[in-house]
């Protein structure tokens, strides 16, 4: 270690968590893995490391991206750093049988291969405690419906980056209606060319402008659905 390098082991727990927020902001994956392992070795459980160090750090990144302080490359580096930390935590979370707060099937629609935003949403949802089944890109209605049948999620999430591909979201929703399964799922949509008006017009339950809003919306809608007995799984 160089003389001017910070020894993460020397930091108190709160200082280390704060340092990890900074390291996430700076996209330092190795430091995030090290900090995660140190907190675990000090007796923090995986859920606490996830919430207090990683998710909180990404929340700050999300705010600064929204406000135009950070740009896409910096957010991608931060996301990669968080992913590295989650790789450490994921088996521990599974081992402890941490209760998921809901299940999400998510994908980029047919004809569209853009997945940066969608993957960010998937990661933030996972960080918030959702089980996420990520179908990837160029997903057609049959693939979405097959995944819904197989995984029985609470939420279907669809993403598109192009004005030419976003209408396909309506095709998927119409296919759900034809099969009489539209109301079995919360449908959330997002992507740069979308807006609230479009989400309503195609019959989605929610349009989410960014990953933070998607996470908050997913939590709120799943909770509301459970409170009103709207799910039977």
């Amino acid at each position: 270690m160089a003389d001017d390098e910070l020894d993460l082991n020397s930091l108190s727990d709160p200082d280390l968590a704060n340092q990890m927020h900074d390291d996430l902001y700076d996209g330092l994956a190795d430091e995030i893995v090290e900090g995660t392992e140190i907190l675990l070795s000090r007796g923090w459980d995986a859920q606490r490391v996830l919430n207090d160090a990683l998710v909180e750090g990404m929340r700050i990144v999300g705010i600064d991206f929204r406000d135009g302080i950070l740009f896409v490359p910096e957010v991608l580096l931060a996301a990669n750093a968080m992913k590295a930390g989650m790789e450490v935590l994921r088996p521990l979370l599974a081992e402890t049988g941490a209760q998921t707060i809901g299940k999400v099937v998510i994908g980029t629609v047919k004809g569209d291969i853009h997945d940066i935003g969608k993957n960010l949403v998937a990661m933030m949802l996972e960080g918030a405690g959702f089980e996420v089944i990520n179908l990837g890109i160029n997903t057609d209605a049959d693939e979405f419906i097959a995944a819904l049948d197989e995984h029985k999620p609470d939420i279907l999430g669809m993403s598109a980056l192009l004005t030419t591909t976003m209408p396909y979201m309506k095709v998927v929703i119409e296919a759900l209606k034809e099969k009489n399964i539209r109301d079995d799922y919360i449908v959330m949509v997002g992507g740069a060319p979308l807006n609230e008006e479009f989400g309503q017009a195609i019959g989605a339950d929610a349009y989410c402008r960014d990953a933070a809003v998607a996470t908050e919306t997913a939590e709120a809608l799943v909770l509301a659905r459970r409170l009103t007995g709207g799910e039977d799984q």
Partner: peptide
């Protein structure tokens, strides 16, 4: 423009689906 001159490791994140 995509920051790849500074962070070339992001190449596949941007272009992996092409």
């Amino acid at each position: 423009g995509l920051g790849l001159d500074r962070w070339p490791d992001l190449r596949d994140t941007y272009f992996g689906n092409y």
